[in-house]
Write a protein that binds this DNA or RNA. Structure first.
Lengths: 231, 231
DNA sequence: GCTCTTATTTGACTTTCGTCAAGGCTCGGC
DNA sequence: GCCGAGCCTTGACGAAAGTCAAATAAGAGC
C-alpha cells in the first residue's frame, strides 16, 4: 500500500484527480519527511532542488536582505505546494513554523512527472494562480496599510485560514485559534517591527476587540470592529 | 491569414509552442484590441471575465482600498499574460500605462481552450510561477526596504525590464530609458507618496547617480552606486 | 515548585516618511 | 512663441512607526 492511500490531503493537494496508477507512480518518486518547528526545508540560494506537498503543519517562505532584515513572503498550510518547479530556483527559504510533515520530490523527477500529467499541471496552475492572487492582496497590505490595519487584516486572515485546516468541515472563520507565529514572525509577515506588533495587540486587547489568553492564543471578541479596522 | 501569423510576440507569449492548427483555433476565439494610455481594460470587481496577451505597450495591475489608496501589484509588458483564468476573478484593475495592443479572449473560451491544450497550460504555468517569484521579491521591497532602497531597486528593475522589450537582442540592462510611469504611479508601485519619490529622485540626481533629462527619461550614470543603494 | 532562558511588553526618544501648502516647470494646444 | 492645465518639486511641519533600553512574563528543564 502506498503512503498516498492514507494521505489526509490526498483529495485537496495537487495529487487529487490522479488515478491509482498515476498515484502509484508519483508515490514512487516522492518520500515523506518530517520537519520539526524551526527546522529549514529549503535554504535561500540552495540548489537542493526539491519541491513538496504539505501534509501537516505550517511552514513559512521567507526572503532576507544581506543585513538580516526578513520578510515572510508566503505561508504554506496542509495541501499547499512548496517549491519552484521549472526554470530557475527562486531565492526563498522554507522553514517549518510548527512540526510538519511534507511529501518531497526531487525537482527533476517532479518536473518530468508533471510534464507527462496535464491534470496535475492544471491543479498546480490553479493553485499557483490562487497563490498569486493572495500574494497581490498582501502587496496592498504591505504598501498601503497602516499598522492597525495590517494587524486587523492579519487576524482576520488567520481566523479564516486556520479554520480551513481542520478535518471537520469548517463552519466559517474560527473565533479562537492558536497562532503558528511568534510576535517577531507576525512582524515579518506584516513588514513591521516586533514592538509595533506588540503594541497593536495590546491596544486591541484594551479596546475589547480581542482576548489574548496566552502568547500564541487569540480570541476574536468583536469581529465587526476588526473588519472595520482592516480597512 | 490569421493575425497570429504576424504577431510580434508570437514566439514569446504563451501561444509559443502551439502548431498552426492550434494557433488557428486560438485565433478564432480571440480578437485584437487597442487600449490608449490611461484607458482601463479590466475594472476591479467587474466580471467582464476576460483574459489577454499583451502584444505591445505596458499596463498596470492595481488594487485599491475603499478610501482611494492605490497599490500597483503588477506590471504587464509585451508577451505577458493578463487576467485570471479558472476560479474566481481576482479583484484587480488593469489599466494601460502607454498606448497598448492586446489580444483578448473571453475567459470561458480561453479556459476551455487551455484545458484542451496542455502545452499552453504549461506555458501559462511557467509564466505564473515566474510572476509569483517577482511578486514575492516585491513583497520584500514593500515590507522591509527604505525609501532610498525602494527607488534604487525600482530604477534597476526598470532598466532591465525595459531593455528586454526591444526587438533587438538586448545587451544587458539599458542605462537610459523612458519610464512608463508618472511620479504618482512610481509611488503606487513602491508604496510611497509622490513627494517622497520626487525627493529621492532629486537626491539621486544631486549625488550624480542618475540624470533626469525630462520628466519620464532616466539615465543611470553610476550603476554601481545604485546597486549599493538597492540593498 | 523553582529557576533560568527567552519571548514579549512597555517606555522614552528618534527617525523616516507622510501631509499640507506653495511654487515652478512641461508639454500640448493654439 | 504663448498660455494654461496638470505634473512635479520643494519646504515646513507632524505623525506614525522604528530604535534603544529596561522590565516583565511565560515556558522549558530540572
Amino acid at each position: 500500500m502506498s503512503s498516498c492511500d492514507t494521505c489526509v490531503v490526498r483529495n485537496r493537494a495537487i495529487c487529487a484527480g490522479l488515478d491509482s496508477r498515476e498515484i502509484h507512480a508519483l508515490n514512487a518518486i516522492g518520500r515523506r519527511r518530517s520537519v520539526t518547528a524551526g527546522e529549514p526545508l529549503i535554504w535561500e540560494d540552495d540548489d537542493s532542488l526539491l519541491v513538496a506537498n504539505v501534509i501537516d503543519g505550517v511552514l513559512k517562505l521567507t526572503t532576507s536582505t544581506e543585513d538580516g532584515r526578513e520578510q515572510i513572503v508566503g505561508v504554506a498550510y496542509p495541501s499547499d505546494f512548496i517549491g519552484r518547479p521549472f526554470g530557475p530556483t527562486s531565492k526563498a527559504s522554507v522553514v517549518a513554523l510548527t512540526d510538519a510533515r511534507v511529501c518531497v520530490f526531487s525537482r527533476n523527477d517532479f518536473d518530468r512527472f508533471a510534464r507527462e500529467h496535464p491534470e496535475l499541471e492544471h491543479k498546480l496552475l490553479e493553485r499557483t494562480l490562487a497563490e498569486l492572487d493572495r500574494t497581490r492582496s498582501w502587496m496592498m497590505l504591505l504598501g498601503r496599510k497602516t499598522a492597525p490595519e495590517k494587524i486587523a487584516t492579519f487576524l482576520l486572515e488567520m481566523s479564516e485560514r486556520l479554520a480551513e485546516t481542520g478535518c471537520t468541515p469548517s463552519f466559517g472563520p474560527a473565533n479562537r485559534f492558536s497562532l503558528p507565529f511568534s510576535r517577531q514572525q507576525v512582524a515579518d509577515v506584516l513588514g513591521l517591527t516586533i514592538e509595533t506588533v506588540s503594541r497593536q495587540f495590546t491596544k486591541l486587547k484594551n479596546e475589547g476587540v480581542i482576548e489574548l489568553p496566552s502568547r500564541r492564543e487569540v480570541e476574536i471578541v468583536n469581529r465587526g470592529a476588526l473588519v472595520a479596522l482592516a480597512g
